[in-house]
Simulated scan of single mutants.
Amino acid sequence: MTTPTASPRGGKPVGVRDSRGYRVFTWVNGTLLLLICCVMLYPFVTLLAQSFSSSGAIKAGMVNAWPVEFNIDTYRAVGQNEMFWRNYRNTVVYTVVGTTIAMVLTTLFAFVLSKKHLRGRTVLIWIAVFTMFFNGGLIPNYVLISTLGMKNTMWALVLPGAISVFNLLVMKSFFENLPTELEEAAQIDGLGWFGIFGRIVLPLSKAVIATMILFYSVAIWNDWFPAFLYLDKQELFPVTLFLRNLVAGASSTASEGAAASGSTTAAISANIQSVTMILTIIPILCVYPFVQRYFVSGVMLGSVKG
């Protein structure tokens, strides 16, 4: 009788076979996940196909998952739109600055709240949690931003939502799970709290930091409503507000044109919208693979309290 030995590559032990039920479960689970993945990818694939299709094919409803009458004329037209690229650059700047500010404030605040010996810690936590359920309202916020002189500035977009309470609580829980022995050893070696935070805590928090960067950057990149409220100058708009105005303007123009003469305005608008959407989401698609490996571990480590 042979004794199962560990696999040299870290897999299951040699000589141990999966049960029939487990194999069936694995097959069914893989099939369901593949179907869900296809359903989720279908809208994006259709959008990509429309961006490379002719206006007539889009109007006729012929475009599904593959381009019809392939062309790149709309990409050329959008690429020559100076305002689109200016708004695109604004979005990059807003995202980088906003994510940096949010990460600095959230990380420092979460580290402070993770210290159970801190006086008033419970009060600070409840103050933060309170803002998850209650806020000042749209009009008071608008009046406050205007009074502070932040209207028509970048700060109206990046400062009011600089700290997400959900992200704050996840990071706080993560910091609480770090071994306290490391901090005690650092204190014996003469490190202060800033030294402990910079040399001990941050290097051990790459997973949760990468996850929070992803959360903040995606939220800021996709957000258009604060810009719609606080920005009046078109040259300050983020690209998402440019896209929103394009969709809103195209919808009204298309309905008027269809009622008047049945023109192809709706098809042309759909083509331009598809190209603009594709160009807008490309940066997020490029960034995600680099932080994806930290994503699951960062959320799990910060959401499970040991």
Rank of each mutant, 00 (worst) to 15 (best):
76 R>E: 08
73 D>G: 09
152 N>Y: 03
35 L>F: 14
231 L>F: 13
277 M>S: 15
41 L>H: 05
139 I>R: 00
119 R>L: 08
257 G>C: 09
24 V>I: 13
235 E>I: 12
45 V>S: 02
294 Y>A: 09
222 N>W: 06
70 F>W: 13
17 R>H: 09
111 F>R: 14
47 L>M: 12
141 N>M: 12
138 L>Q: 10
261 S>Y: 15
222 N>L: 14
128 A>V: 05
169 L>S: 14
296 V>S: 07
166 F>V: 12
32 L>P: 01
80 Q>A: 15
161 G>V: 08
106 T>S: 10
94 Y>Q: 01
160 P>W: 08
211 T>W: 05
282 I>H: 01
255 S>W: 05
176 E>Q: 11
179 P>Q: 15
197 F>T: 04
211 T>K: 13
182 L>I: 11
52 F>A: 05
78 V>M: 00
174 F>T: 09
295 F>T: 04
75 Y>S: 01
122 T>Y: 05
113 L>D: 06
238 P>Y: 03
127 I>A: 15
92 V>W: 06
93 V>I: 15
95 T>W: 01
54 S>P: 08
74 T>M: 14
200 I>G: 07
89 R>V: 10
121 R>H: 05
236 L>K: 14
242 F>P: 07
53 S>M: 10
186 A>W: 00
81 N>A: 03
178 L>W: 05
161 G>Q: 09
35 L>M: 13
20 R>H: 10
215 F>P: 06
161 G>C: 00
177 N>C: 13
294 Y>L: 01
294 Y>K: 03
294 Y>N: 00
208 V>F: 08
256 E>V: 11
181 E>P: 07
40 M>N: 11
212 M>V: 13
83 M>C: 02
171 M>W: 04
257 G>K: 13
9 R>Y: 08
89 R>N: 04
64 N>E: 07
259 A>L: 13
207 A>I: 05
298 G>Y: 00
190 G>E: 12
9 R>D: 10
107 T>G: 10
56 G>I: 06
192 G>N: 11
305 K>Y: 01
16 V>F: 03
16 V>Q: 05
48 L>M: 14
294 Y>M: 10
78 V>R: 02
51 S>G: 10
134 F>A: 11
125 I>M: 11
56 G>Q: 07
134 F>E: 03
223 D>K: 00
217 S>F: 03
107 T>N: 08
220 I>W: 01
132 M>G: 03
146 S>Q: 14
190 G>V: 12
172 K>Q: 08
111 F>T: 06
131 T>L: 07
119 R>M: 01
233 K>L: 06
